[in-house]
Design a protein around this nucleic acid. Structure first.
Length: 505
RNA sequence: GGCCCGUUCGUCUAGGGGUUAGGACGUUAGAUUUUCAUUCUAGAAACAGGGGUUCGAUUCCCCUACGGGCUACCA
């Protein structure tokens, strides 16, 4: 029925705050599907509820998606006609459709106040506004036409509710789950248009998806229970032939306990759940993001792309272009996935290891700047990066792994060598700095045999002198191969550091 | 409570009527690195339970259990 339609999908975030993992993944799957089929990917801003709208959130969402490489487009053939749609800008249109539904007998005016309904819920814990009780509540079904007209004329606040059929089922083919069926008598009469004239999500999403000519909908599984309402709306509005195909994505769950992954879990478990740092303008609270932690967007997208999807082979590392090329709906899994931060780190490690220097360099330079290294030698930076890359999990690990290349160690781990220190060792190092001065080819392949020869000549064991040498250069028991470090540091700097450290032992 | 969805190693998953049930993360043990990390090799580790159908079920069906979602004038 909609197979002839051009593939056009949309991502509909609500601008109420940061973009969490589940949101980005929904965006990504929509995007992969659209691009795989050569279709459009459109943004629709879900600002239905002005009370929850947060300033700056829309810009934030755009920035997140751009960082991930998920770029929305307006329709190429009708620029401006599609997206981004903002519900708040389309208010009159929704009212018109709600009124049409009332006229056609698929919806009705309800005059019950929020307080009255709350009171009902106090009385009956399982209260639902439905065919069972709608005739005993205050609405255009229970009231006479005259009474209704009178209330409407008087400007009485009211909502418009869908009139769910008392009998029958709604059934549809979910692209991921297969056939899903609901009995309409068990569904309540959802509010379509609120008393303030704004639509609820149910009405707005259907009207907008129609207007945007959306062909396929990928959304979280939490929407599955309201799918029958949306499907009925497509029919009641007379658009059954244009209805998109549905796919309800499995949820991303908390790594421990149970439930959907939420913003709070990040603080609790010590990892981000947002793509980028988000500061709530009202509370000033900062929620940390993957970007700022030092994730590469490629790794982030890769990790999300294979959470609940795989290509059927054992391949795990994908570029976004590979994901687009291989994406297929029938390889999306049905069950929710617990988020595993350890695996996320592994993806980032893999990507950093294999990323070319040029891509990494801007971020590395800004890390150097932050640490007060303003005029680092560019070729030194490149060489250090080559050596240190495979040791990094996050881009931000660079400084911890390599600060000693750019500045003399602030602290020397004296205790690690002092207890076993001898005058003989002092003499050895005093002598070797003299001899270093004569070395012509200052590189690791020359330095290693040179140093070992001198140790052998001194009659001491190599093991006794390697560690002190390392500690004098980097300050502690860590870092890459010591001769590599010495080579990169340069002759003068090595001599300087030994000279400076020697008196400490 | 009601409705809907789901269930393969600790986690993400592949597989699918007959397999030594495969991979990855994590973990354990070795090797390399005279440091730390990396890397390499090896190991432990799973079909929720009960009924069917079948020569045979982890795979298909039913029930139960468990997990999750929804049940707002939120999205």
């Amino acid at each position: 029925m909609s197979s002839q339609k051009k593939v056009r999908v949309r991502f509909a975030p609500s601008p109420t705050g940061g973009l969490h993992l589940g949101g980005v993944r929904t965006a990504l799957f929509n995007y992969l599907f659209a691009r795989h089929h050569g279709g459009d990917f459109i943004l629709r801003i879900e600002d239905t509820d002005q009370t929850r709208f947060v300033p700056g959130a829309e810009e934030y969402i755009n920035e997140c998606l751009a960082w991930c490489g998920i770029l929305a487009d307006e329709s190429p053939e009708k620029p401006g006609a599609f997206g981004p749609y903002r519900q708040s800008e389309r208010k009159p249109s929704y009212r018109q459709f709600a009124e049409q539904l009332v006229k056609d007998g698929y919806a009705y005016y309800a005059f019950d106040t929020a307080e009255e309904l709350d009171a009902q819920r106090q009385l009956q814990p399982n209260f639902r506004y439905s065919h069972e009780n709608r005739l005993s509540l205050r609405n255009s079904l229970s009231l006479s036409d005259e009474q209704t007209a009178e209330l409407l004329d008087a400007g009485t606040p009211h909502t418009i509710r869908i009139k769910m059929p008392e009998e029958g089922t709604v059934s549809f083919e979910d692209m991921i789950r297969g056939r899903v069926t609901f009995e309409t008598k068990l569904i309540d009469d959802k509010v379509l248009l609120k008393a303030d004239g704004m639509p609820t999500y149910h009405l707005a999403v259907v009207v907008d998806d129609r207007a945007m000519e959306i062909s396929h909908i990928f959304r979280g599984e939490e929407w599955l229970p309201s799918a029958p309402v949306h499907i009925l709306l497509w029919e009641y509005l007379g658009w059954a032939n244009e209805m998109p195909q549905w796919a309800h994505l499995p949820l991303i769950l908390k790594p421990d306990g149970n439930g959907k992954l939420s913003k709070r879990d990040g603080d609790r478990l010590g990892f981000p759940v947002y793509a980028m740092n988000w500061t709530d303008p009202k509370t000033g609270d900062l929620t940390k993001g993957f970007r700022e932690l030092g994730f590469l967007p490629e790794a982030f997208v890769n990790m999300l792309g294979v959470l609940g999807w795989n290509d059927g082979t054992e391949k795990e590392i994908f570029t976004i272009d590979e994901l687009i090329a291989k994406f297929s709906v029938d390889r999306i899994s049905k069950s929710g996935a617990k988020f595993d931060f350890e695996k996320a780190k592994w993806f980032n490690h893999e990507w950093i290891k294999n990323m070319d220097n040029a891509t990494l360099t801007p971020a590395i330079n800004s890390i150097l700047m932050e640490n007060g290294i303003i005029n680092a030698d560019a070729s030194l930076v490149q060489n250090v990066l080559l050596v240190v890359k495979e040791r990094m999990t996050f881009v931000s690990d660079f400084w911890a792994q390599s600060s000693f290349f750019f500045q003399a160690p602030q602290q020397i781990d004296v205790d690690a060598v002092k207890p076993k220190w001898t005058a003989e060792k002092t003499a050895f190092f005093e002598q070797i700095i003299q001899e270093f001065a004569t070395v012509e080819h200052w590189d690791a392949p020359t330095l290693e045999p040179f140093f070992k020869e001198k140790v052998a000549a001194s009659g001491m064991k190599i093991g006794e002198l390697m560690m002190p040498f390392r500690i004098m250069l980097v300050g502690g028991k860590f870092g890459p191969d010591v001769f590599l470090i010495a080579a990169l540091l340069g002759k003068q700097e090595v001599i300087k550091r030994i000279t400076k450290a020697l008196p400490l032992f």
